[in-house]
Amino acid sequence: MTTTEPGTPDLLYSEVEEDLRASVRDLFADQAGAAAVLARTETSEPYDLKLWRTLAADLGAAGLAVPEELGGHGASARETALVMEELGRSLAPVPFLGSVVLATSALLGADTTHEVVVELLAKLAAGELIGALAVPLSSTPDSAFPESVKVDADGTLSGRVTSVADASAAEVLIVPATGADGPGLYAVEAPAAQVTEVISLDLTRRIADVVLDNAPARQVSDAAHAPAALKHALTTAAGLLASEQLGIADWCLTETVKYVKERYQFGRPVGSFQSLKHRMATLYLEVVNARAAARYAADTLAAGRDDVEIAVAVAQARCSPIAVHTAEEAIQLHGGIGMTWEHPAHLYLKRAKSDEIALGTAGRHRAHLATLIDLTL
């Protein structure tokens, strides 16, 4: 139970959130340890769908932000952000970003009385269906509505979308498309599309190109709602991605501090050297900064306050470079072992670098923030 007044940001974790964190962290420790994640990157099955079913259905993570009347658990972006934070700590290979964050948020931003929307949300929330939002992962909340997919005269869809997150694991694609009636969002069954994985830096989150050729589709949002629904999805995803970046930074700092305490040189733990103490202190302050920005974005999204766009832009502008810096320092301060494929540090750097581009670079968010606060450059 929170003691803050209505409208007051709450950056602390509640008891319920801490319980959720413990459950998710225990699950990942048991089924997505570093060795297991590293091993899976070398296989032809990059996603752990058994783990996904446990996370999505058994723990109920897929339906956290979906209202109870639509088949979810009626929680909020705060709880979803906490799962994202733990995903950043573990890099568990599950399609959470594509399905729970992007696809589900797009449907929640549409008309939730629409028959198809109700049907899809119920299945997504129950973990019975994996979704993906067919936009490039680099799309930003202030992007124009995409026009790469067109609505054909017979209502089918044709076009191509590149670099779609988690598309190769998806069973339904939520596709922005334009037609004679203007922009809209459409649901396309994955077998009706040609989905081809592309080589990506991040081996724990796959991206794919999606080609549609007269693909049967069901409209889930019309011209009156589709642009706002898409912006809602991208804004929510950018805000929650900051929590994943926080998780990356937190893991990197924790593991690096642990290592420098155990690694000895000249009869002393290397962590006792003053220069390394200073670097650790800098990283600690950055992680604290990232936590404040990410938690504020999550709390603002949950409360639906007027400064959502500002909070999200600030969170991405801060958390993105911090995640990269802590991952780089983790590799350097682990010495020789940090440079090897056997150590998981390189996976965290790859995720941090990929997240640096995902849903807008830090520079793009700073530029957008300037327009939001009327800052004249």
Results as ranks from 00 to 15, higher is better:
residue 298 A to D: 14
residue 162 T to I: 10
residue 75 A to W: 06
residue 278 H to R: 15
residue 274 Q to I: 15
residue 162 T to S: 08
residue 181 D to M: 07
residue 110 A to H: 05
residue 139 S to T: 04
residue 239 G to D: 07
residue 312 V to H: 06
residue 368 H to N: 09
residue 326 T to I: 06
residue 42 E to T: 13
residue 159 G to S: 09
residue 355 D to H: 13
residue 4 T to L: 10
residue 5 E to N: 11
residue 81 A to E: 11
residue 173 L to G: 05
residue 350 K to S: 14
residue 198 V to L: 06
residue 172 V to L: 13
residue 204 T to M: 05
residue 356 E to V: 02
residue 150 K to T: 15
residue 102 L to M: 08
residue 131 G to K: 04
residue 182 G to W: 05
residue 364 R to P: 00
residue 234 L to M: 09
residue 93 P to Y: 12
residue 22 A to H: 08
residue 78 R to N: 07
residue 308 V to I: 14
residue 21 R to G: 03
residue 155 G to E: 11
residue 90 S to I: 08
residue 266 F to E: 14
residue 47 Y to M: 11
residue 171 E to Y: 04
residue 23 S to R: 13
residue 233 A to R: 04
residue 152 D to Q: 15
residue 298 A to Q: 03
residue 163 S to P: 01
residue 180 A to L: 13
residue 376 T to D: 11
residue 367 A to L: 12
residue 173 L to M: 08
residue 329 E to P: 07
residue 80 T to R: 04
residue 226 A to M: 02
residue 334 H to D: 01
residue 162 T to A: 12
residue 81 A to G: 15
residue 340 T to I: 05
residue 47 Y to T: 01
residue 324 V to N: 00
residue 91 L to T: 05
residue 374 D to N: 13
residue 219 Q to R: 14
residue 190 A to Y: 09
residue 166 D to W: 00
residue 323 A to K: 04
residue 126 A to V: 07
residue 121 L to Y: 13
residue 53 R to F: 03
residue 243 S to E: 10
residue 284 Y to E: 14
residue 348 Y to K: 05
residue 377 L to M: 12
residue 83 V to E: 01
residue 119 E to I: 08
residue 37 V to D: 01
residue 221 S to L: 03
residue 33 G to V: 07
residue 264 Y to C: 06
residue 144 A to T: 06
residue 372 L to V: 01
residue 57 A to R: 12
residue 12 L to M: 10
residue 373 I to R: 10
residue 311 A to Y: 03
residue 196 T to L: 05
residue 48 D to V: 09
residue 126 A to W: 10
residue 1 M to L: 03
residue 305 R to K: 11
residue 365 H to F: 01
residue 287 V to H: 10
residue 321 P to A: 02
residue 268 R to K: 15
residue 245 Q to V: 10
residue 193 A to V: 02
residue 194 Q to T: 15
residue 196 T to Y: 11
